[in-house]
Simulated assay, not measured.
Amino acid sequence: MPATVSSPSPAVRCADASPAEPGPASAITGSDDLAALAAELGIETDDLAQVCPADARELSKVLFARLRAADEGTAEYSYVRGTLIELNMALVKFAAGRFGHRAEPTEDIVQVGTIGLIRAIDRFDPSYQVEFSTFALPTITGEIKRFFRDTGWMVHVPRRLQELRLTLAKTTDALEQSLDRAPTSAELAEHLDLTEAEVNEGLTASRAQTARSLDAPAGPDDPAETSPSLADRLAVDEPAFDTLLDLQTLKPLIADLPERDRRILSLRFGAELTQAEIGRELGLSQMHISRLLNRTLTDLRTALLAEH
């Protein structure tokens, strides 16, 4: 059986007097009933979030007995269950505080931890003879860790590789202690009965959990003022990119042209015929082809500038 885990105490004082023995079990369906029960125990319940841990434990014990005696789906069951959630939110905040170094907003971590708290409340039985905090904290923490494992990756990584990453991290720590140095991939593979390729795959997967900004210095210890960024080192100028972008923009504009104008453009810039050759092909004078071509190009240029 796990040892009792003490949760942090809010900055409030517990009731000085020893709590009275609670009276006979009765239905709890509202705040007045809860206040009466708390009064029997010598506990103030003006704000459940500020009830100190010792009082929260005493009140929770009685509430769990009432919860298990109530029929699921009744007003009493819903109220007692909601009260237990609110009364034990300090456990969620305590567990979430362990992950304060993560980039995810604290509100999201608390929300996920609350799901773990609800599951713990639904599964807890007073006959377990263990403090609810001891029972609930592993469930709350596990829910938060599952959240990070499933959503805390910059790219999608299969669950198999996520679990392999954790195994490799633990094994690396253990081997570093015994070898007094970082283990090699071959040593990790031998210790875990894996192939070296599988170990390297797991190590590669671990790099997908975080990502560096392209504006960061190329070297981890390089000063930002003097070191080129990753974007500077990786980026390559593509002189044809602007041309390709213009062609893509021109596509629908050319498609809207009359058939004869599209034909002239195709012969001039596709077949690379001269204006005189295009005139002979279409039975028009070279001067007429020149006027048609200039008008078409002017219209396209105007439409292209309007697109930009």
Rank of each mutant, 00 (worst) to 15 (best):
L59C: 03
Q162C: 05
A136Y: 03
C14Q: 08
R98N: 11
K93L: 12
V12D: 06
A65F: 06
L59M: 05
T83D: 02
T243M: 09
T151Y: 13
R233P: 01
V199A: 00
Q177H: 14
L84C: 04
S227W: 05
V80L: 02
D46E: 14
L67P: 02
I144T: 01
A11M: 09
E21L: 14
E72N: 04
F94M: 12
I121G: 00
A36L: 12
A56C: 08
P158H: 08
A235Q: 10
T114F: 00
A27F: 05
A205H: 01
T134P: 02
L293E: 03
R13I: 08
F124W: 08
L284Y: 11
E272Q: 14
A56F: 00
V51G: 01
A303L: 09
R159E: 10
S127H: 09
N88V: 04
M287R: 15
C14D: 07
D215M: 15
E187V: 06
Q177K: 15
V110C: 13
H101K: 15
E281S: 14
L293G: 03
T184N: 10
Y77P: 00
Q50S: 13
R102P: 00
I115Q: 03
A38T: 05
P138D: 04
T4C: 12
P228L: 12
L214M: 14
I118R: 07
I289P: 00
L175N: 04
T141I: 14
I144K: 02
I85W: 03
A231D: 08
E86D: 13
L245P: 00
Q162M: 10
G219R: 15
R268G: 02
S18I: 11
S213T: 10
C14S: 13
E190S: 14
G116Y: 02
I264K: 01
G82Y: 06
E277V: 05
A240G: 06
T134C: 09
A3E: 13
A240L: 13
P10R: 07
A75T: 07
T184V: 10
A235V: 04
Y128L: 15
L293V: 07
A231M: 12
S185T: 12
R119K: 13
P138E: 11
D256Y: 08
H156R: 14
Y79Q: 02
G23A: 09
L91I: 08
A3F: 15
A69M: 05
H308P: 00
A240Y: 08
A65W: 04
D246A: 15
R212Y: 07
I109D: 01
V5E: 07
E259Y: 06
T172C: 09
A3V: 11
A174P: 07
R268P: 01
V236D: 06
L273R: 11
A3G: 12
A182R: 15
Q209S: 10
L253H: 06
F147K: 02
R146G: 10
F148L: 08
A120F: 02
R13A: 14
Q275V: 05
A96E: 04
S213P: 02
G152K: 04
S227A: 15
M1S: 13
V236S: 08
A240P: 00
L247Q: 12
L257C: 05
A36K: 12
T172Y: 01
S7I: 15
D256V: 03
K170Y: 11
L214A: 13
A174D: 14
L247W: 07
S133M: 07
E72P: 00
L41I: 04
E201D: 09
L91R: 03
R13W: 08
R146Y: 07
S60H: 03
L245N: 06
